[in-house]
Design a binder for these strands. Structure first.
Lengths: 335, 335
DNA sequence: ATATCCGATGTAATCCTTTACATTCGATTG
DNA sequence: CAATCGAATGTAAAGGATTACATCGGATAT
């Protein structure tokens, strides 16, 4: 691997010229450019990123942290982010925080240390070590949130209208005729879980059915939904709305274990529209989030900030969609 | 963010001493060390990674590429890898190649450019751009494969005994009394799919049932299994062995669509033991791979190479396990 | 008392690239 | 023809850390 010095020598020019050929080719004469590029190609020269980033104070990298990489929801977001990053000349580092604040802080330190130019976090916790940076630079800090919008964070964010989406789900169940509806939420600290709950309660209240909602707290995992579903079935609910598709999977499993059948005995509606949701038994009715687009827009937002665009958007709200498959149906008429 | 120079000035020592305190503290006197560390703490100094890596030619980073980040199987492997990397003082960059050779090459270039110290790839394709490096350094090249062992790659690898695991699955079905067994494989280029197929055929042949196997080609995705399952059901198989849990999910979905019931009418057995497998309907019998351990050992192997351990192991074979849940049962006696 | 050694610390070169500023030279203008 | 300009290129200073080598002073050996 040659250095720029050797390339310059071979091409009979100075290192400055080589550097210019590579980063601002229009400043170099046609003739010289061709000669340099020829040498670059032959020698297989590529600029040393450490040296470059030392000099420019830019790493051309974006850090993307997810609270749980085994959650398929995030996979699609990551994809969208990587594509957008590639388009903008950045590469993405993915970090799995496992909901561990210590790990979150470790990753956040990479930003303080300037190992990466910006941070996108998909969880709801803003790492503590970023507080000073955020206080200093406000929304000009290269930090963006995806999915888990919370106004107190003071960070730009990309998300759907969770309250409205949730209301759509409840409305769908009400329209089908359900009057005893179970809701399995995310953890209480999750801001979007609160938004969704508020939306659900809103929709029920508007229909004069505030009391028909039976609320249970889950943690987005299939396992947590199993227990809560058993509980809800004991309450004779005819439908269950889960705040994630994974929980819907757990709910379906518990329904089957109880000797019941979905949607004949109990309807189930999920949230996320994972790629696998169509293969659930029965295929899952759910709220689709534009996952890839969320990833893409978070990166675009971050890149705007990095480029110093004067007034980057603060909040981007994308459209959700109710996808009706076979896990929801009118309640059994017998009841 | 202060530099080492300012820290040195504040502590009244030279930059060399500060550097030594941080990397080889035993070379510095107790007294000086304390003073320097105090300044470091107060000033919040952290070494600039670009400068360090420029000087040392090491990045303290490992690149881990996965062919499909939305596949939950890889999530667990990534976790194990990240833990092991953290233990060894490295951090992990995750790259999603989406099975795209061009993207694979792009990531591989990060190794050539020394942006990362080593590469772990979980797919079966060795990026073309690494051929020269591999030719030059042989197995001393900092490249390790996980899961997809293939002897022709000439790269150390961590994996299970896929043929034996597959044989176990078939044997389980045979033991239950199945005599018409469908097999849905991975893509034909996948070496582990070939191994598994060989193992399956072996087991069937040993039982004198070579002709009872009905083989269909899938691509590890749920969707591909749906079509193949329909086809197999038309052949009146009483059991289906899928080379991934995702395909098992597709198979279950297709079985339900056909108005049949698992395991009453058709048994299904998967491969991987995803976290969700226990929530399938019915809970899935499958071959468990030690996913976290695969990740961990690939990193350990790579770190051995990076540290110049003279004879790092070439192949690590970990243990699999047949996990019997409820998706397999004896065939309906009526047949 | 002198020579020797060793632990602790300092000096300065080095890693490779980018870029502000300087230089050169041919073309244009008055 | 001298002065001015501008495009193309070169010179050299940064950027921050590591580390080979040099230095210093006190302890030990002779």
């Amino acid at each position: 691997m040659p250095t720029i010095i050797e390339v310059a020598a071979l091409a009979g020019v100075s290192t400055a010229t080589v550097s210019r050929v590579l980063s601002r080719p229009e400043q170099v004469s046609e003739e010289t450019r061709r000669r340099v590029l020829e040498v670059v190609r032959e020698s297989g020269y590529t600029p040393n990123v450490a040296a470059r980033s030392l000099r420019t104070l830019r790493a051309a990298k974006i850090l993307l942290t997810v609270p749980d990489i085994s959650n398929a929801f995030f996979a699609s977001v990551i994809r969208g982010a990587e594509e957008a990053a590639r388009d903008a000349g950045y590469s993405v580092m993915v970090g799995d925080t496992r909901h561990d604040p210590e790990v979150e802080d470790q990753y956040a330190d990479m930003l303080s240390r300037r190992e990466v130019d910006g941070l996108i976090f998909l969880g709801h916790r803003l790492p503590a070590s970023l507080a000073p940076l955020l206080a200093r630079k406000g929304t000009a800090a290269p930090i963006v949130n995806g999915c888990e919008y919370s106004p107190d964070l003071g960070v730009p964010s990309v998300h759907i209208d969770n309250a409205a989406a949730s209301a759509d789900a409840i409305q769908h169940l009400i329209d089908l005729g359900h009057r005893r509806i179970g809701v399995i939420t995310g953890p209480e600290i999750s801001p979007i879980s609160r938004d969704r709950l508020a939306g659900a309660i809103d929709a029920a209240t508007r229909a004069g059915l505030r009391d028909s909602l039976h609320i249970r707290v889950g943690d987005y995992s299939a396992g947590s939904a199993v227990d809560q579903t058993r509980d809800l079935l004991a309450q004779d609910v005819t439908a269950i709305f889960c705040f994630s598709d994974e929980m819907a999977m757990g709910a379906l499993s518990a329904i089957g274990d109880a000797g019941l059948k979905c949607p004949r005995d109990v309807s189930v509606i999920g949230f996320d529209d994972l790629p696998l949701a169509r293969y659930f038994q029965p295929p899952l009715t759910t709220i689709a989030q534009p996952k890839g687009m969320i990833g893409r827009r978070t990166v675009e937002l971050l890149v705007d900030i990095l480029r110093g665009v004067e007034s980057p958007s603060q909040q981007v709200t994308l459209r959700h969609e109710l996808v009706i498959r076979s896990s929801t149906a009118p309640p059994a008429s017998g009841l």
